[in-house]
Simulated scan of single mutants.
Amino acid sequence: MYNSTKAIVLSKVKYGDNDLIVKCYTETDGLVSYFLRGVLNSKAKRKQLAYYQLLGILEIIEYSKANSELKFIREVKPLGHFHSLHSNVIKGSVVMFLAEMLSSVLREEEQNSQLFQYLETSINWLEQEDHFSNFHLLFLLNLTKFLGFYPETTNIGDATSFDLETGRFVIKSNSRYVIEGENFHILKALLGINFDVLNDIKINANQRQSFLKMLLLYYQLHLGNFRNPRSLEIFNQVFHT
């Protein structure tokens, strides 16, 4: 039985000499891994490799086989034409970093249309936008809505700090994971905004790197087995030079 779905590419791994396993987040089934048999040694199939670039958005006709946890692709075509995502070196580093983050934190094997729509809209915004220095910060912050630990804003008006451990704005806390100062004010500025007004938030390179470090700690505190992406060092070198 065949099924048609949109899919966002999160990772791809060579399997054997000629095969590829591509992990995608799909509109109909959440996280799915596809087995691409012989794609590396077939001239006809090799032309499709360009479709499977990180964070590429595809339309896939898929099918399953008995006794296989992986799915297979009968037909594939790209949705939209992404140029800057993979030709711009700085955007490319953002894509590599965020794809690894998503591959690590998304584990749902069921439909979540709101999450898929968020990912699709965000990727399209990044492709079209020339000023994207703070994109990854807002992207990761908003992603916590779907992961279950978006900051609780009940006391945001009176708060003087934010407790990363509880995810709450507080006046006083004995937690070792309380943030104040610049990171606290940047967090407040980013909450509740969308990408269209993101460039109104002025953050310099040092502040951006500090806030990202804080966000990754926030993920680690709320996702027990989370580890910083291996691409983080390259991302920091490219993005903050």
Rank of each mutant, 00 (worst) to 15 (best):
R208G: 07
R208E: 03
E59V: 11
N41D: 09
R37F: 10
I171E: 09
F169P: 00
N183Y: 05
H185Y: 13
I61E: 15
Q207P: 08
E120S: 14
L31F: 11
T241H: 12
V95P: 01
T26V: 05
S87Y: 14
N225G: 09
V39K: 07
A205I: 15
L164D: 00
I8S: 10
K12W: 05
S84F: 14
N194Q: 10
L55M: 12
L119G: 01
M101A: 02
A7Y: 01
D158C: 12
F169S: 00
L223D: 07
N3Y: 09
W125H: 13
I201K: 13
K6S: 13
N194K: 10
F135I: 05
H185C: 03
M214E: 01
L20F: 05
G181T: 03
G30C: 05
Q207V: 08
L223K: 12
N199C: 00
H222L: 06
N236D: 07
S175Y: 04
E100T: 02
N124I: 10
N194C: 06
R46E: 13
G38F: 04
A44E: 14
V94R: 02
V32D: 04
F97E: 08
M96I: 14
S64P: 08
N41W: 02
K47R: 12
N88S: 15
I57K: 02
L54E: 13
L137H: 04
